[in-house]
């Protein structure tokens, strides 16, 4: 049976005149993709484990004073001692980060589309965008506190401002990266500009958008924490600031650790979404050098 199918297939190929054809595999399902992802990403986890061992080694051998660098055990004990405390503040920062990230995506994508549609708008907005980007966020964050108070507002705003720029830039690049012949072809098909946008321009821009989103995801975490540094009574930034004041390095380390995990987690989610939504892009990239996790 198998031989029969194979020979039929070979026959088809010969008739088609091409020996090098399609890879003989179906599209991977979600589970398979997740499995492949884990399979590919064991190395960074191994490295992480090695770093932990090194950290533990340094503290166990008492190479540095424990009040400067606490041991991994002390750090985890600090978390275990007050799980609700850490959970509450982690949740606050997560909430600010995700809200900031989502707003940045929405505003960034809309701004990019508008800028690509109208060159006048692009010329007007671009300098402003650049200006907003080069201003150090930490320098204007106090102003946001004055304006918006000690609540979530300033944190989300700083997160949006930090994450917004990579989203716009990557989306504009993506929308402009469409093959001009593809657009000419579209006009010979009598396509309306809306059709050309949704069927050609927008999907073509997504790989670019996602590379911007990966940068933006980590920026959003930084933004939220920067906002908390300036004035807050909740969030991981607040935890770190407070622990710093008390010279409580285990809690400080715990805050740092959770914050990094948050950034990595958000990055991984974006990456996973990319593989889920753009399998054509991911499978193509896999054939070349793999650049990410």
């Amino acid at each position: 049976m198998v031989t029969h199918t194979q020979s039929a297939r070979t026959g088809q190929r010969e008739r088609a005149g091409e020996a090098s054809g399609v890879a003989e595999r179906g599209r991977p399902g979600i589970g398979q993709r997740l499995g492949g992802f884990l399979e590919r990403s064991w190395r960074p986890f191994a490295l992480l484990a090695a770093l932990f061992v090194a950290w533990w080694g340094v503290t166990a051998a008492e190479l540095v004073e424990p009040y400067l660098v606490p041991s991994p055990g002390d750090t985890f004990d600090a978390i275990a001692a007050r799980p609700e405390y850490f959970w509450e503040h982690t949740w606050t920062t997560t909430y600010e980060t995700i809200l900031g990230f989502v707003i940045a995506i929405a505003v960034g994508v809309v701004a990019a589309v508008a800028m690509v549609q109208s060159s006048t708008l692009e010329k007007t907005l671009y300098p402003l965008l650049l200006f907003a980007q080069v201003i150090p966020k930490i320098a204007i964050a106090p102003l946001f506190v004055v304006w918006l108070g000690f609540g979530l507002g300033p944190k989300i705003l700083v997160a949006v401002l930090m994450a917004f720029f990579p989203v716009v830039i990557s989306m504009v690049t993506g929308l402009k990266s469409v093959d001009p012949e593809m657009l000419q072809l579209s006009s010979t098909m009598g396509a309306k500009s809306g059709q050309t946008f949704w069927k050609i321009r927008f999907p073509a821009s997504l790989p670019h958008l996602f590379s911007g989103l990966k940068v933006a995801a980590t920026m959003a975490v930084t933004g939220a924490v920067v906002g908390e540094f300036v004035g807050a009574n909740a969030g991981l930034g607040f935890v770190i600031l407070q622990a710093n004041g008390n010279l409580d390095t285990p809690v400080l380390f715990a805050g740092l650790l959770i914050m990094s995990l948050l950034g990595v987690l958000l990055f991984v989610i974006v990456e996973w979404l990319e593989q889920l939504l753009l399998p054509w892009h991911a499978s193509r990239r896999d054939e070349g050098a793999s650049t990410t996790l």
Partner: peptide, 14 residues
């Protein structure tokens, strides 16, 4: 003569 290749993505084709 594209029969059998309908579901292939462009980068999988010669």
């Amino acid at each position: 003569g594209l029969s059998g290749f309908e579901d292939a993505l462009p980068h999988e084709l010669s």
